[in-house]
Design a protein around this nucleic acid. Structure first.
Lengths: 357, 357
DNA sequence: TGGATCTGGTGCAACGATGCACTAGACGAT
DNA sequence: ATCGTCTAGTGCATCGTTGCACCAGATCCA
């Protein structure tokens, strides 16, 4: 039967006290003669001893388990991220408790509090809310909170670590890509912009538009209703609705579209097809995230890739940081996104860059 | 500061012993006068008491945390399932520890053992391996193992509960759909068939083919290399390779294709496009699972849907079953899959059912 | 040689909840 | 009054680990 060997058994086998075994286990080896250490290590190996987590946590108040709060692992982007987080945690000997917030601030708060009360001291919170007020109490109590996909805000609690790509650069990258291809009427499509990263992407879009000598005010920007749903599952629906709206004939339609993420972009593509248009030929579409389906789509979707594995690794390290370096300041890490050009973007019909007469 | 109130505090506040509080907490209320019970409940509410999980687990050996072992949450199907599992666990007051096996039997075993040794007594294992030998020890020790997406096998340990759709029916459904549309040359595309559910889907395919008076031996069946990779990420690559192979001109190509899952189907569609063919017009393709992208794809992918939410709910209930009803036998639950016809399937060109004259 | 200092380790009381074995007191039967 | 029985609730040892406070023995210095 597994899980039966205790620290006492190891101590007896090695001819030392349980305290010494504990000392070894907790790296208090400075005062221990090498021979003793080896005896204990031998005993541990021979008995196949594994410390009891519950006892450890009860006594020390610490745990190797991380909390991961994502909007929904049902969304391919978050699923991919969750996987990388688990991989990274495994490397550090930790586990991951999975929570789906459905982007509901109330659920976010409840999860964070519950995890905290269960003794979990490190949480990776994937939220795009501008404020962290709803979890401020717990942070003050000592929670190591790492936010992902949400750049730091001025009034965030000091200890918070933020990991994100530079969304403004990403938005710029996507938009410039379309401009370089020759597009001059470029739409921006998103659900509500009340999220930090979305508005940053939008800012990057605006910058690029202006830098090209175009005027944002003349561009078709579709941001759903400001008060509407925020879900990830709904993102595709948004995109579809946006396409229907922008190509309804009420205004001059765009030749290029920057979507706030791949799900929205995919939905937009579907909407284009509904309207009898062809993606990549009639209209260029670029997304954001590079989810697995982007490359599978027909046509393969151009997008801005987030370095998910690297970010997950960073997040796990920060969330696992030993409380020893308690003075460690909060900070913000912005990684650089990467443009992935595929077939959903091309020169606009009749553009200068297309085949010569 | 949260998590500070102990059972002693509650006992003191209610004027009873800690034992009585514990009795209430553990539903040993048969011997307790209602007034006492109410006093305790009041105290709990007023102090905001929450039992310490670690202490509980240490003492009782029980925990509310479930282990979930999926091939990879990066795969949209597993991501969607994981989400539903978490939702169901939440309803029962439980948590979910996430593990990605990458379909590696060694990792599966290590995860299961580790979870067991950490005191977790219920695990939902998403595996397609024909044998459960690699985790038999732990099951014997008392683990409540629920397998998902893997129908029970004759020599499975008795206590194992299996939850799955009826894959054979699913394969039959998909194939019959194509036959009904008029197809007579129907391929089956899969990675290795060394998995229980895939071979069941294949059996359903065979049944349907034979039932239609056609001959399986004349059908193009593509199953990758029997010894090849098994991954979910690779599934799309398989599909693409299969399309390249089946339309290389070496043999008469199929007009309809049954893919073993949606990722493979999507990859196949991409392969068709590589070959200059149009999905739904030149070739009909049907997948399996109904992942979120199936409906977004161009054209929307016909598929066989698994009732994920219902299955997740069932799995969680079984994995959380109190050890009280220890005599409860293992069993197998097969849910019925549902055909979702979309635009990737249509009558074959020149078929009787197409436009007359 | 006595006392200070250092080294390598041990003793033990927690951490917070559990649940078996027990009992104080009420009640009934004789 | 004595004894049994029942009810409602309590005492206490225990789960496995931790880490502070302590200590025996060796070494050093005057």
């Amino acid at each position: 039967m597994a899980g039966r060997v205790t620290i006492q058994d190891v101590a007896a086998a090695a001819g030392v006290s349980p305290s010494s075994v504990s000392n070894l286990l907790n790296n208090r080896v400075d005062k221990m003669v090498p021979a003793t250490r080896q005896r204990i290590e031998r005993a541990i190996a021979e008995l196949g001893y594994r410390p009891n987590r519950a006892a450890r946590q009860l006594r020390s108040g610490r745990t190797q388990t991380l909390g991961l709060v994502v909007p929904s692992v049902g969304n391919p982007f978050w699923g991919a991220f969750a996987r990388e987080v688990e991989v990274a945690a495994l490397k550090l000997g930790g586990n991951v408790l999975l929570c789906n917030s459905e982007r509901d601030p109330g659920r976010e708060r409840r999860y964070v509090e519950e995890l905290w009360e269960d003794g979990i001291r490190g949480i990776i919170l994937c939220t795009s809310l501008p404020s962290l007020d709803h979890v401020a109490d717990v942070i003050e109590d000592g929670l190591r909170l790492v936010t992902f996909d949400r750049p730091a805000q001025a009034n965030d609690p000091r200890s918070v670590v933020s990991i994100s790509i530079d969304n403004q650069v990403g938005g710029h990258l996507a938009t410039t890509h379309l401009i370089d291809l020759g597009h001059e009427r470029i739409a921006f499509v998103s659900g509500s912009l009340r999220s930090v990263n979305r508005s940053a992407r939008y800012r990057g879009y605006c910058d690029a538009i202006e830098a090209a000598g175009l005027s944002v005010s003349e561009m078709p920007v579709w941001t759903g209703s400001e008060t509407g749903e925020f879900g990830d599952v709904e993102a595709a629906g948004f995109g579809r609705a946006a396409a229907a709206s922008l190509f309804s004939g009420e205004q001059e339609p765009p030749t290029g579209v920057v979507a706030v993420n791949d799900m929205t972009a995919l939905g937009f593509c579907r909407g284009l097809r509904d309207a009898g248009l062809t993606v990549g030929t009639d209209v260029s579409v670029i997304g954001f995230d590079d989810i697995i389906l982007a490359d599978l789509y027909d046509p393969p979707l151009s997008t801005v890739r987030q370095p998910i594995a690297e970010m997950a690794q960073l997040a796990v390290v920060e969330a696992s940081a030993s409380p020893g370096n308690a003075a460690e300041p909060g900070r913000s890490v912005l990684l650089r996104p990467q443009l992935i050009a595929r077939r959903s973007t091309a020169a606009p019909v009749g553009a200068v860059t297309s085949s010569p007469a």
